[in-house]
Structure formats: C-alpha cells, structure tokens
Design a protein around this nucleic acid. Structure first.
Lengths: 336, 336
DNA sequence: CTGAAAGCGCTTACAG
DNA sequence: CTGAAAGCGCTTACAG
C-alpha cells in the first residue's frame, strides 16, 4: 500500500480509502482515484486481509463447519451454494472447514474457526443428534453459531422432514393409493429418522389407514435388505403395497429393481417416492423425489447467523424449511 | 493477550511465546507457563489470527477453490479429506471457497483467496478443460497454485483415468471376456472423457479385439439413452457384449435394469464395471467400481503445493494418481 | 480534497 | 529466565 501510494504520489491513507474504503468516494477526486487504481494494478497489489481485519474488528468471513461423517457429507453442495449466494448480497465470504470426528477430541485438530478469532460467526453442519463435545467447544469459545440439519431448542435451521413426508403421503393418498408402505431408514443419530416416519404415519392415520412401516434389516447386510424388499414385492397382489415411500433413494431403487425382476412396472404397478439429495434415475425415468431443501437451509442459516452476530445473547427460534412437492416419473394412480 | 499478561503477572511477549511460540519452551519456566495457560483459559483467550499472520508473513492456510458446476462438485469429500489429513501433519489448515462460473466474470465475486493475501497457496479443483479467465486471474495474482482433477502441462495432479480404464479392461479380458463394450460418457470439457475411452481402446487393441464404443444419445434425453442401452441388451446373445465398462455409474445401473427387464442376470449374464465416486448398489449387490482416488489426489496436491510455496518459480511435472483395482459384485467370468 | 498520526494484536530479535 | 520495543499492513478519526 505504501508502494502504491508512492507510485501514484499520494498518501497511503488515500490508497486505503480508494481501494477498500467503506464509503465510496470518501473525498477523493476522480483523477486521483484512477491513478491509484492504475498503480495498484501495475504493482499487483493485494490487500492483506489479516491486517484489515485487525483494524476493523470484522473479518467478513463466516465459517461453515462441515462434518466428514458419511453419509451426511453429501449435503455439502446445496448448503454451500445456498449460503454462498446469500452471503454475496451481504458482501461476506464463506469459508469451509472440515470437521472430522477425531478433531473433536484432539485440541491440535480443532477447527481454527473455533480456536482462533478469524471469522465473525459459524454455521455448523454436523448431522448427529447429540455432540456434547462440539457443544462444549463452542460454548467455551463464545462464537455466534447457527446449527443446520439438526433439530434443537434454538439457533438452528433444518429441512422439515416431518412435514415433507406428511405431504408426500398425502399426495399418494390423493392419487387414490391406500396400501402405502413406508420403508424405514436413516441413522439413529439423526432427527430425520424419526421425523420422516412420523410424518408418514400422521398422514395415514389422518386418512384412516393403518401405517405399514417396513422395519428390520436395518443392521443387516445390503443383501438381506434386498431380500426383505423382494419378499414385499412378491406378496400377493391384494396385499402388496401400491406405493412405497422410502427414507432413502437407495431403497427406492431396490424396490424398483425388485419390481423389474418379477415383471412389475414402475410406476404403473408400483409408485415410488423417496427423498433425494440429487436426482436419481433408472430406465431413463426419474425417481420421484422430495428434494432436500439445502439451498434454502444454507441461505437461511446465513440470515440467522447475521442476526446472531448482531445480538449474540438472544436465542433464535428453530426454523424448519419446507420441502418442495415431489417431482419425477415414478408416482401415478394406483392399479385398479 | 495484554489481559492475560496482566492476570498472570508477566509481560505480553511472554504470553505470546507460551501460547503460540514456535519453539516450545522458549525460555519460560514451567511455573510461569502454567500460570499463563491458566489465565488464558479463564479469560477465554483466542488468538487473533489476522494479527498473527501479519507479523509472521505466513497464514497457515491453504485455500481449496472448488467449482460449483455439477456434476463435478460431487468430488468434494475425497479431496477435502485427503488434503485435510495431509495438512494436519504440516500444521496447516484447509480453507474451502466455492467457485461459481459467474464469479470468474465479476470482480466482486472473485474468491477472496485470490483477491486478497490471506492464504499461503491455492488448490484449484475446477474440472473443466480450459478456463482462460481463471488462468488469467491466477497469473495476475501470483499465488502458488496446484490444479487438481485437470491434466495440464505443469503444476497439476489428477486421477489416471487412462490407466484405470486400461487396467479395468484388462481385468475383464483376463476373466475371459471378449465382447467388452465401452459406454461413452462424460463432459466434453473434461480430460477423463477422452482418457477413459483411450484406456479402454488401448487394452482392447493390445489384446487383439475390436473396441466397441457405444456412442450416441450423449445429447439426448435420459429416456433416449435408456432406449439405446436396451437395444444393446436385446441384441442376439452372440452379438451382445458379455461385459460393459461404463464412464458413469448411472449408465451401468441402466444396463443393469435393462438386463433385469429382459431376464438377464448380473453378473452371470452380464458383467458391469464403472467408475464411481461413491459405492453404488442394486439388488443388494455392489456395482463393481473403479473408485476415483481423490483422497490421494488431495494429499498429493498439498505436498505439491508446499513445494510450490517454497519455490514458486519452478514448474512441477504433472502427476497422475493410479486407481485401485475395481471392487464389487458385478464382474465375473463370461457366460459360456 | 489530501495528509499525518494513532493504534488494532500480535511476533521476534534483543537487552537485561 | 523475563521485559521493553519495534513494526507487520492496514483503517479511521481528525487536522489542514
């Protein structure tokens, strides 16, 4: 900056105002401004963000702490994009640190966003229900935090899994399905496991039908799980579900292939809906899916975090983000 | 830090040495050290990393610029993890910024890692073949850079797609397959599109067989693509391939479902191998896959970048990372 | 419209 | 073993 000032024949402070000044203009003539910009270009000037942050007390960074634990890490893209787009509007930047399980227990591996003062706030996407270690770490460091993809008492935002599966079940009911099964799935550590089933059951009960939750084989091998699915597809037609709602898209594809195996068509003979984080296809048809609304979760998390940064003491009420209606080629009227 | 010094009755500089000093000890007695650590805990001291970087001239961050463009963004996890693990060993931290297409053209959206001086070097994962805009941006900012997932003249590291598909073809040949087809795929912008096909063709020619590349429908709908696959499965047995190698796991699953539709079994009647970024299953069997070696690419990128930071002028030779042998349940001996 | 000065929170050589 | 001082590169209020 001193070099730029010298080359353009002005004071270093003027360079600061022109290149990074908050108020545009700031009392610098157009000619001077042009000279400074020119000089900065010539010298390849890049601001030292450490120095800038030190003075201003704000870094302009928000940190996203992303758990490495499969299968939840697949959620990255949507969250990042949603958060990123929202941040552009506030002239903020997103900064992602991976968070491995081990890193919670070894001080040397702690995310730097927690250990040091380097971002204005933190968005956590951990995915498990209870992480007391992480909780303690955060408490101790008094950083503004918003939790995503977790249902907690405050300061969180997550997809409305209960509502989404309720609505999807209603959609199938509206098409005329009555024997709608739910293929249970998910990790015991994640709220969605309970919530999705609950949404399905509520819709079934509301409509006066018995929920049919397909359990078992959760712990078994993939092979066992497939055999279970096959046995359901092979039920006599009058007992076979005409539609299956699945926690996971993998299971939906397994229903699909089991149907193929016995000569049933999807969706004419069997409707399928599952939640998906990215579109899935088979036979050139798109699996009807509830797209997880992670872009909105990401954007919402940024907005909440900005509030939290303003008023760190205030608890923010939990926020559930609605799914969009299921889209795809694998749900239709039931066979008559 | 001043507060910590006061509370523990020492000079601020001693606090710095104890809490963040490079050389352990640094000439501070054990008793003093303990008092200082205690005081820091009590006050919840967190170092201001901006100030620290400013003094030391090194930030301890490496930036990973990650393209948002589907479908390449799915590569995140492996790269991040591989890079992250390697960095821990050098006491460095990984910092990820998303890179959208638009951000290349709008100065306000440029990654901060480029605009500002805030990390010691950059790992780029963009995925497209040519990105002159990004190239120019980087050149202009004179930051040490390593490119991943791109085959370039220098300073890059990428999966050895040619070698991987060569080896997979040889594996199928070794099992006794002769009619091995290759389902073409990939984006025109990515080197793997060419390289995978080339690896397949080289293995076939080496063995004295005609390559059978299934083209067409690249631009068509998913439905058209599936019809093409179906027509191949419906060929008379003597002309039908006994094994298909696929660029994408989606196509492999489509071959699989087409086989199911006409009553062929996988792998007894049809072997399938595809490259995968995460495991895929159908019917409770795992698709035989070439696992993309992104963890190694990430770790290697960090090592290369550290070299580059030491000697920014030197061009580093391109580095291709081998795939592991294909694993899964869908390749076996051909039907007799 | 432009310049001089203070100070953000650290690290590092150096003096005691 | 401990302390005093300089200075990293900025921003911001203030003086001219």
């Amino acid at each position: 900056m001193r070099d730029v000032a010298e080359l353009s024949g002005v004071n270093q402070a003027s360079v600061s105002v022109v290149l990074n000044g908050a108020r545009s203009g700031g009392g610098v003539s157009e000619a001077t401004r042009a000279r400074i910009v020119q000089a900065a270009q010539e010298l390849g000037y890049r601001r030292n963000s450490g120095a800038a942050n030190m003075k201003s007390g704000r870094s302009g960074w928000l940190s996203l702490l992303l758990a490495y634990n499969e299968p939840l890490s697949a959620l990255n893209d949507g969250l990042m994009q949603g958060a990123g787009k929202e941040m552009v509007q506030h002239n903020l930047h997103l900064h992602v640190e991976g968070l491995s399980v081990e890193s919670l227990y070894d001080e040397a591996l702690w995310p730097r966003a927690l250990r040091e003062w380097m971002s204005d706030g933190i968005i956590v996407s951990y995915g498990k229900r209870d992480v007391p270690e992480l909780e303690a770490l955060i408490q101790r460091h008094r950083v503004p935090v918003i939790w995503t993809n977790a249902r907690r008492e405050a300061d969180c935002i997550y997809p409305d899994d209960e509502g989404g599966f309720f609505a999807a079940t209603q959609e199938l009911l509206a098409l005329g399905h009555q024997r709608i099964a739910y293929m249970f799935g998910g990790s015991a550590e994640h709220y969605s496991t309970e919530d999705r089933r609950a949404g399905y059951e509520r819709a079934m009960r509301d409509a006066g039908y018995m929920p049919d939750v397909i359990h078992g084989a959760e712990q078994g091998s993939e092979e066992e799980r497939y055999q279970l699915i096959r046995s359901i597809i092979k039920r006599p037609a009058a007992q076979r579900p005409t539609a299956v709602l699945c926690y996971s898209d993998e299971d939906a594809l397994n229903f699909w292939s089991a149907a193929l195996e016995v000569g049933l068509r999807v969706p004419q003979d069997l409707s399928l809906i599952a939640s998906v984080s990215r579109p899935k296809s088979l036979q050139g048809k798109r699996l009807s899916g509830l797209q997880l609304p992670f872009e909105q979760v990401g954007a919402g998390a940024v907005r909440l975090l900005l509030q939290k940064i303003e008023e760190p003491q205030r608890s923010l009420p939990p926020q559930a983000v609605a799914f969009e209606a299921s889209q795809g080629d694998t749900h239709t009227q039931p066979p008559r």
